[in-house]
Design a protein around this nucleic acid. Sequence first.
DNA 1: CGCTTCTTTCAGAAATTTGTGAAGTTAAGG
DNA 2: CCTTAACTTCACAAATTTCTGAAAGAAGCG
Lengths: 165, 165
Amino acid sequence: MTEPGEAVRDAEAVSKFVEGFAAQLVEAGMQRMPARVFAALLSSDSGAMTSAELGEQLQVSPAAVSGAVRYLAQQHMVSREREPGSRRERYRVHSNQWYEALTNRDVVLKRWENALRDGVEGLGETTPAGRRLAETLAFFEFVERELARMMERWRAHREEVFGRD
Amino acid sequence: MTEPGEAVRDAEAVSKFVEGFAAQLVEAGMQRMPARVFAALLSSDSGAMTSAELGEQLQVSPAAVSGAVRYLAQQHMVSREREPGSRRERYRVHSNQWYEALTNRDVVLKRWENALRDGVEGLGETTPAGRRLAETLAFFEFVERELARMMERWRAHREEVFGRD
DNA sequence: CGCTTCTTTCAGAAATTTGTGAAGTTAAGG
DNA sequence: CCTTAACTTCACAAATTTCTGAAAGAAGCG
């Protein structure tokens, strides 16, 4: 059993983290509800919660949870699991998966690159503007290659420090 | 002088790029007006435009330009220059500066790290949730170190391919 | 110094985004 | 099969964001 004050303090600590971290994600461009759901999952002991649990902890409707989870799943930031023998679903954040997903931002990079390529073509490679766009494009292509390598190094580093999953 | 169709086609190409690239930036979380202003600067031949020019090209009020530029300057994505002997200001995107600024996203990283550190402390390093947050924190710290190195490599690579500025 | 030109600030209108309740859909379990 | 629990979709209300016009604030120039 926990000491009287424990459970309460813990709930407070969780809530504090959830709102604080979510706020940072929002600032970085994420929608509020997905950010809150994600933060809640990240700070849950099991790393997984049901729709109902999320709704209660965050004080929002099932519809809001549904929308947020759909978004997060699309971004590969959470995965859905069917609880066997129940129509309840649980949403899980794998320790790894989620920042791998963050690296999947190179989907975004790819789209930027395409827009830039179109720009270079439209403006002409030899115009000053065209050259600027081309250089920017080269930068993103460089970053993309480097990111892949970086993730490899991270996995090695991680295994060393935290051991295998 | 340019051939009859030339100027028009060019304006169209510019506009196409501006709106297309801006749309991608918006999708990635940037506000629309800063995104459009930035794209316009990026695809201008001189890499610099006045407030009036921006307003006309984008069909927006001086107030909108002012707000967008303020934001972009805060993010170090453009710099402001006073046109000597005029109270007109020009806003410039340096070929380099701007993606250096993109790397300045490590300000964002720092804030995430702080939120995570608070979370680890609040939840306890030894709880499962605490450990997950700690690992996430370690990831970001790793990324931060790597990003710095990556930018060094980029500068070298860039000089090789494009020559010195 | 005051005039003029450009930029910024601010209050409010318009548009967009966000979350809810309710109805609709799916699938487990009798 | 029918019932029922759970998730999803949809139309709408509320909140937020975004842009504008107008007024105020700088800064060159006579």
